[in-house]
């Protein structure tokens, strides 16, 4: 895969629509708009704007990088579904990149990425040495020397500033993974759906 492969990265895993078009080390165009809702309507027009700004067309892309969370369930699905449709239509791979990998991009190790998971919980992954992504109670988190992410403040820590905007990191990581087999992008939820099994066992049946 050429070093300057054109990759479009995007993310709607939180209250934003973010996109970046990269080619190797160069960021050709990028945009991030904060919004609490409306990402499903805004995402595709935003991607087309970023492409146009970078002087590229859909057919020029070598790959797509898509944020898979963890984060807002619906938001993650908006981007993942769009990425799967684009991938199928363009015949190029869509590569899922977690918020952890994106935030850790270009930061020193050992590093903990901590994301606010609400309800007294955080999503955590440690890098150098690496751990698996996990959902954890706030009080159970033991962080590494460096820390970043939206949940850092919950632990009373000052987060490291990101090395690059989220969508740029997603696009760059996707570019690095190009050429190796990649699964279809799938949301990284880390939290089970809220659903309780039916509690009515039904009547006792008599013989």
């Amino acid at each position: 895969m050429p070093f300057d492969a054109l990759v479009l990265g995007f993310d709607t895993s939180a209250a934003h629509c973010a996109a970046a078009l990269v080619s190797g080390d160069r960021v050709l165009a990028q945009a991030q708009e904060d919004m609490a809702k409306g990402q499903a309507e805004r995402l595709m027009p935003l991607l087309e704007e970023v492409l146009a700004q970078g002087g590229a067309a859909w057919s020029d892309l070598a790959a797509l990088g898509v944020g898979i969370g963890p984060g807002n369930f619906t938001g993650i699905r908006i981007s993942v579904a769009a990425a799967r449709g684009l991938s199928l239509g363009l015949g190029v791979p869509a590569i899922g990149v977690s918020v952890f990998d994106a935030r850790a991009h270009g930061l020193p190790r050992p590093l903990s990425v901590v994301e606010d998971a609400k309800r007294g919980m955080v999503y955590v992954q440690h890098f150098g040495p690496d751990s698996a992504p996990a959902l954890s109670a706030l009080e159970d988190v033991v962080v590494a020397e460096h820390i970043t992410g939206t949940g850092a403040g919950l632990l009373g820590a000052v987060p490291l500033a990101a090395s690059v905007p989220l969508a740029v990191a997603i696009a760059r990581i996707a570019a690095l993974r190009l050429g190796t087999p990649q699964p279809r992008p799938a949301p990284l939820y880390l939290r089970a759906p809220d659903a309780a099994p039916s509690n009515d066992p039904g009547p006792v049946m008599l013989s």
Partner: peptide
């Protein structure tokens, strides 16, 4: 809405790409 949104976004991706 979650399912409808997934369908609409997949369709948009397909339509934009093709």
């Amino acid at each position: 809405i979650g399912g409808v949104m997934a369908g609409v976004m997949l369709a948009k991706g397909l339509a934009a790409a093709t």
